[in-house]
Structure formats: C-alpha cells, structure tokens
Nucleic acid binder design. Sequence first.
DNA 1: TTAATATCCGACTAATGAGTCGAAAGCAGA
DNA 2: TCTGCTTTCGACTCATTAGTCGGATATTAA
Lengths: 202, 202
Amino acid sequence: MVSERKINEREYRKSLIRKATLDVFGELGIEKVTMDVIAKKSDFGKASLYYYFPSKEDVFNEIMVIGWAKLLDGLDDIVKDVISPRERFIQMLKRLVTFVQEDRTLFEFLMIAPRHVNVETNEVPEWKNHQNHLYGMLTTLLEEGIKKGEFVSMPSEIAMRAIGGIFHGILFLGKSPTEINENEFEALIQNFIPTPDASPNE
Amino acid sequence: MVSERKINEREYRKSLIRKATLDVFGELGIEKVTMDVIAKKSDFGKASLYYYFPSKEDVFNEIMVIGWAKLLDGLDDIVKDVISPRERFIQMLKRLVTFVQEDRTLFEFLMIAPRHVNVETNEVPEWKNHQNHLYGMLTTLLEEGIKKGEFVSMPSEIAMRAIGGIFHGILFLGKSPTEINENEFEALIQNFIPTPDASPNE
DNA sequence: TTAATATCCGACTAATGAGTCGAAAGCAGA
DNA sequence: TCTGCTTTCGACTCATTAGTCGGATATTAA
C-alpha cells in the first residue's frame, strides 16, 4: 500500500504546497499568506492542506529547513579550498549574493518568516541550527582572518554585525531591490571591509 | 468650553495613550499591540481610545510623526556647523546612535510600525516626508563628500545602502542589543567607511 | 440647579483566519 | 465486484481583533 510511488507523489504534492506558499509570499507579502490563500493558489482544498501538513507553522518550518539546507549546500566546497580566511570569507558572501539573486523570494522568506511563527515555543526549531551553522562558519573565518591580520582588528561579534548589515543593506535597503553581480559586490566588499595596512581601493 | 486647559488635558490624555502604545510595543512586540491591550495599559476603556483617535492607524501615525520630528530636531544644528561633509555625515550618524540609545523602543517603532499600517493606501503618510528629509540630508552630504574626495568614489545610492546597513547591523543585529558609546561608534565608522587615499585605521 | 458639553466604557458587531469534521470520491488488491 | 486505504473538500467552529453603540457620569457655564 505504501508503495514507493505513493510516497513520491505525496512528497510531490507537499512540494506544490510549499511552492504555492512561497509564491503567495512573493506576490502579496507575509501578512497575506493564509491557509485559504495557499489553498486557492495550490489548487487544493483548505482541508487537504491539513492532510499534508499538521499546521501552517509546519508548512513554514519545512520551507525554511529545505531553504537553509539548499543555501548551506552551495557553500560546502568553499570551506575545503585552501585560501586565506579573508578570501574564503568573501567567497562565502559572494555565494550568498548569488543565492539571493537566484531565489530572492526564498531568501526573503528565510529572513522574514521566523518573526511570524513560533509565538511562545521554547523548542529550538531545526532551521535555527542551520542558521547558527552559517553564522558559526563566518565568525570562525573572520576570527582567523583577524588573527592573521587580514582584517582590521576588532571584536568579531561587532564586525559580524557590521558586515551582516552591509550585506543586508546592499541587497535589501532602498527603494528598488538591487541587481548586483558578483564582481560589483566584491568591489564593494573590498571597499567596505578594511584591511589593516593598505588603502582599501586600488 | 474649548478652554485652553481642556485642550491641554486632551493632548495630555492622548500622550498617555501614545505612551501606553509604545510601552506595549516595547514589552510584547508589535503583534500584541491591540486596542484592547493599549486600553488596559493606559487605563482607559477601549471605546475611550476611539474618543481620542479615529483609528488604531492614527495612533501609530501620530507616534511616528512625533517620533520623526523629535529625531530630526536633534540633527538641526549639525547642518549649520561649517565642517567637512564627511565630518557632518558622521556627526549625524553619531547623533542617530544617541537617539537610538536614548529611546530604543521609539526608534524600533519608527522602523517596524510602517509595515503594520497602511495596507492599501496611496496617500503618502506624513512621517514618510520626515524620513525622506533625513535620507535626503544624508545623501546630499555623502555626495558632497564624494565630490570632495572624502569618501571613496561610488554611486551614492549604493553607498547609502551599505552605510545604512552598517548602522542597522551594529545597533540591531546579533543576539543582544548593543550598548555602544559615541566614541566606539565613531571608531567603527572610521574603520568601515573608507577614505580614498589613506589607511582607514590609525 | 439645570442644560449643555466633554468624557467614559462594557458589550456588541463584523470580519478574518487557523484548524476540524464528516462525508464523499478515487484507487488498488483480492 | 467488493473491501479498505488514500485523498479530497466545503462548511463549520472557535478565537481574535478593529471598530461601534447607546447610555452613563462628570464638568462647566449660566
């Protein structure tokens, strides 16, 4: 009864629901992402959504877990390359930019959705672990880089905040969303993330 | 009937309601800011709130208009000083830091509340003008500074995004809210906002 | 004191949205 | 075909929240 095909079809239908959820989010914003609208968009009945997901929160969580996994997947090989911490750090940021540009809606969902679930749970959600993993990798690289004198010396937590802010600012602040390619982004980063002993440009 | 005192008392009661709104926001977050909770907090009946404000949106708007006015007020004298654009620019950022630290809740409200009102209105709300004013002042200074070679040369809109991101990142990213004094902040800024021709630190 | 005006408010309405129910339709193996 | 499992779903419940209603109470001016 629980044939391979059945399982695959079930997973396929779940993916349709996740897709519809992201589409609604992208078109109308997080506030309008209701189970009724998702049902309309995915062409299921509302009750059918609950046949596949126990709750709206579970739909959100599944999207986030899969999204973070995809994001981290794209970073895996960087860590193995043997280049300087600074280079690896910037490589990572560049990959993140690519990820954002390829699926902006997903990335925005990963940033915004957490504020709209989880009202009073003290469970650590799975996606949070992925997030911490990324944060940890970046922090480690930054600290190694500071130790080697590749970044200006300052507390790594503060530097992480500033750099995270730059990243976020470039991609999301301002009137219209930015299209920026990897080279332009790298130039910006080289400008804004100072090295201790040289002029940052040229 | 409409005596001076009456008018003052009315304005005073409105300020109590605004205060209660901000308090609820600071303690429980924007989602929990409902008219019922504001009523409890301010010790008015719910219907009384509507005697002073036509709608919840009006409460929000009034807080934002007053908040932005207060913020801009603190910047007025800077523009008149005759120092370099870069100096003025950084002065402004420092004042903003001070403002944030003095009333973090208000500043966060100014950042967050807009996303929770205005669902489908094409009126430009009053606070938006204040916001644009600040944005315009900073952009102008930045452009003058770039022209004078006090900042590294790049499109001012991109630079604004990056700098806005740094500002936001330092004050709001990370686990716990940062306490940072003006001098620490200035050091950070001097590190992260490069000059074209000199090493950014020392 | 009295009439007008200002202030106050709990209970109600209307809308919205998450989640449930019970029944029906589709499908596979015997 | 019959039986049981899978899938579907519109209509319902329940909770929440913005905003209203109608009347009560306080204050002021005459």
